[in-house]
Design a protein around this nucleic acid. Structure first.
Lengths: 287, 287
DNA sequence: CTGATTAATGCATTTTTTGCATTAATAAGC
DNA sequence: GCTTATTAATGCAAAAAATGCATTAATCAG
């Protein structure tokens, strides 16, 4: 049984058409026909019911389609990662992070990496919608900064620091300092927030703040990109609450008013990391 | 890439010896050498570091060994199950169950299965140590009776009935009826219990009973096999608390004293079952 | 009934795999 | 330091498998 055969099978089980499938996978129809037949024979499972005009999955075929799809994805991800381990210092590392550390912590880390391991490629991703932990488990990310603590047998979480939160307003806004912030002063101000995920530490902290100031936020826009939010604030579309570290972006036209609230920043990585490059870089995150 | 090659790799990564491995997998050493090399070439990953005297896994090889082992197991389990689906009415069903339903519910079910699907083989297993839900997920069991309710995206739980519990004593024992049961009467009586798993509904119920009667059980023997426990009781090794349905075993020399406590019996199966045979039998479980 | 479509198959060719024998390299024994 | 035993790699010829082309057989649409 060849992984190729399984790929052929998966493609054919989507297309349900030999000639079209054979075209898509760049083989002739005769090869596809025979490969599928060989697969069926080896497994001793009839995968398709084919008349000369129609191709259908059998129940067993449908089952294997469902089961094999994620299995082959995992298989490929694992091989991909094995290759990264093999490449060693010439390899690459994927770091997932929230936008708020783009201006201090992350540049620091990158310059340290550059100094110690000049051969390593670093890929930075910001993916909030998929939980970082899922990226780690699927080997799609190697290090993951986030505001939320995970607990898992495969992932290690470590508290890095606490970031102050700040009310972010346009420079022209009359609100001056933290004690001035009241529901009154903010009434009518639309809020622009980062896309919030239920149950996240970050969201809970947000709710806490709004409760503290007696605000029922009027949320008009959401974005996962901090600079987008800053831009919207500058242009007068509303105000936001963001980690104070965004002030280091020096975005013009906005003002940060520090609030007496903090959000934690965690670093996550796989327990038993096999990639020496990742382990090395992990050393550099806590100098 | 062939699944065979991966199997060769896994074997070799355990043995770390070409000739011995080739002997074990029934090929010549030259074939093994070339197959491994072909695998390495296709993956572009160096799997082993070999001098002429020693074979070692590279870090990438070690990683792939760890990842591939469970992946190939899953792969094989899935194919196995696909074959069962293919076999249809000539196939087989694995039912996991506690011993206590061996005397009423299970024989009833089996005779119904025999009547409606005479071609189906039924395999009965009693595995308490592995949680039933794991068996279901790994396709090692198809239906699972248990005293514990699971909640999962892949498994459905249904309450079947409540079974009364009973104090089981040797016939000669002077304890007569439930109201007589006191810590006094049971003092000094060793208890024989089924092997209890932490957090299980069944264990919680047991603790509840002992608390109710003010007993601190002196547990001398444990067994997962009801008939073993009954036998020990008969021979005067102690007393036990068991589901009343064990009385249907008509084991000589023991007496059942019904207690005002019950334990639930659940049936579990995979959501989205693909095996028609299993679905059919599932119909028969709730006539 | 005819033509179009589509999966299967016979056949010659190419590619791959296999087993045997041998080689090259190394470690251990004397 | 030399010899021997061990072990992975490799050359080679035979066997097996895969491939592409052309054709066939079956079925559906008009």
């Amino acid at each position: 049984m060849t992984t190729q055969q399984i790929e052929y099978f998966l493609q054919l089980s989507d297309e349900l058409h030999y000639w079209r499938t054979s075209y898509k996978v760049n083989i002739t129809q005769s090869v596809l026909s025979r490969q599928i037949k060989a697969l069926e024979e080896e497994l001793q499972i009839e995968l398709f019911k084919r008349s000369n005009r129609k191709v259908e999955l059998t129940p067993a075929g449908r089952f294997l389609q469902q089961q094999w799809k994620p299995l082959m994805e995992k298989m490929n991800a694992v091989i991909q990662y094995g290759r990264k381990i093999h490449q060693g210092e010439g390899g690459s590392v994927v770091i997932n992070h929230p936008g708020s550390i783009s201006y201090d912590m992350l540049p620091d880390l990158l310059s340290r990496i550059l100094a110690v391991f000049p051969g390593i490629k670093v890929e930075l991703v910001q993916s909030k919608h998929t939980h970082g932990i899922e990226l780690l488990k699927a080997f799609e990310a190697d290090l993951c900064y986030s505001r939320h603590q995970y607990n898992d047998d495969f992932v290690v979480s470590k508290l890095i620091r606490e970031d102050s939160l700040a009310l972010v307003v346009p420079v022209a806004n009359p609100i001056l300092t933290e004690p001035d912030i009241t529901a009154e002063a903010l009434r009518g101000e639309p809020f622009i927030l980062s896309t919030l995920t239920d149950g996240e530490t970050y969201q809970l902290r947000m709710e806490q703040i709004f409760t503290r100031y007696g605000i029922e936020p009027d949320i008009r826009f959401e974005s996962d990109f901090g600079s987008m939010i800053l831009s919207l604030i500058e242009k007068g579309f509303g105000v936001s609450v963001m980690p104070l570290s965004y002030s280091l972006a020096n975005h013009p036209g906005v003002r940060f008013i520090k609030l007496p609230f903090e959000v934690p920043l965690y670093l996550h990585w796989r327990k038993n990391e096999d990639n020496a490059v990742v382990s090395n870089i992990l050393q550099l995150t806590a100098p």
